[in-house]
Design a protein around this nucleic acid. Structure first.
Lengths: 218, 218
DNA sequence: TAGATTGTTAATCGATTAACAATC
DNA sequence: TAGATTGTTAATCGATTAACAATC
């Protein structure tokens, strides 16, 4: 039973819990204490207990947490039992990679179409999906319900495309384009994957680490 | 002049500032106040002033911040003026996408090699780079200095590979593999891009939003 | 029962926001 | 000078950690 609103920092940790619990499950571990799990994950036991308690006492005093039950519960909280229809726009390198990922990944989403506006790419087959002409989006929507769109298009194309998809009823985006979809509409859900930002942060970490070393040497 | 240690939340915002400032620069904007920028970015002016002050008073009272100076400064803080040598391991769909990205992206890193252990992929050309046999990594390191490795390999291969690269001297990783490289060594820098985690979070946001709507309707 | 470990409250820590004096 | 906007201190808010009573 879920209490109140779960905070975003907690949510962002759930997939990681899910991953570790999946591992334990595979290794035949039935139960685990917050301390054991904390050691494995490199976090505090306190945080784990707080986090897990956001969605109701799942553990048992003196015993720990049931691995499978917890795994299932986190999956349920994340909504992985759903099957949202999703389309992918942009069949470039990144689009292909993400498309392959989606074709394989069944939890939560079902990929039902790939689009591009490049003549070269239209008609190509990616993991069993034939790339369709982006000009035919409106026609496609007339007989498909699409929950989510994945944007793997250049920065310059993103804004107009998002607008168009919004008008067609799309209210959630997995955004890989180097553009801030952000909050032009209040009812739109966006999850960004900005590879460039991530790379810059890596660059910072390396540079910062080197600076620190250099300082120490002096 | 940089004060003390800049906190991680601030650092994670820098690439976004950098992006917006780059935009302004392209549009010929010379100066901007914290309020204007805050409006554009959907954050508070207070936060912007606090953030920018971490690396010394760059603005001018009554005037605002110089766009170009700030842009350059953030680039410098992020270490984008460096040129770290990087290799990519794994030439699957994702590896190809990331390789293309790195071949194009010059800031901070220079891609100097792509490796895979799949016979099919070895010898292929990706954006001008010939995929080399991962078995030849040791030989490659004997006449190249490699700062960073990008891991686009399956979960199962990641652990052993990271170990091997560590022994060869690699101390920073851009990790796309579905595996927690984490902190087995204290001197290793890792930036993770877990696409699956991101997708799960999108799934949560959608499901949570729908739940909230349903509740309201009742 | 004794030992272990949770659930939960309280304490601490850090990050964000607000306010305003300094100053261009 | 007057107006604007920063730099910076103080107040608030939220998240993490610590502590411990409840309980299996």
């Amino acid at each position: 039973m879920q209490k109140d609103k779960i905070s975003i920092p907690v949510i962002r940790r759930l997939p990681r819990y899910y991953r570790f619990l999946g591992d334990l499950l595979e290794n035949g571990v039935n139960r685990i204490s917050s301390h054991e799990l904390a050691d494995k994950m490199g976090v505090t036991a306190s945080q784990i207990r707080q986090d897990l308690n956001c969605f109701g006492g799942f553990g048992q005093q003196g015993y720990g947490y049931p691995v499978e039950g917890l795994y299932q519960e986190i999956g349920r909280i994340l909504g992985l039992n759903h099957q949202y229809n999703v389309i992918l726009i942009g069949a470039g390198n990144l689009g292909k990679a993400v498309g392959a990922h989606m074709a394989f990944e069944k939890r939560g989403f079902r990929l039902i179409g790939i689009f591009d506006n490049d003549e070269e790419k239209i008609g190509q087959t990616i993991h069993g999906y034939t790339v369709m002409d982006a000009a035919a989006l409106e026609a496609f929507f007339s007989d498909h319900t699409v929950e989510t769109a994945i944007l793997c298009v250049p920065r310059t194309a993103a804004s107009e495309l998002a607008e168009r998809l919004y008008r067609l009823g799309v209210r959630s985006f997995w955004n890989f384009s180097h553009y801030d979809l952000a909050m032009r509409y209040s009812d739109v859900i966006v999850e960004n994957v900005h590879l460039n930002d991530s790379l810059m942060i890596l660059c910072y970490k390396i540079s910062d680490h080197k600076d620190t070393q250099t300082l120490r040497e002096k």
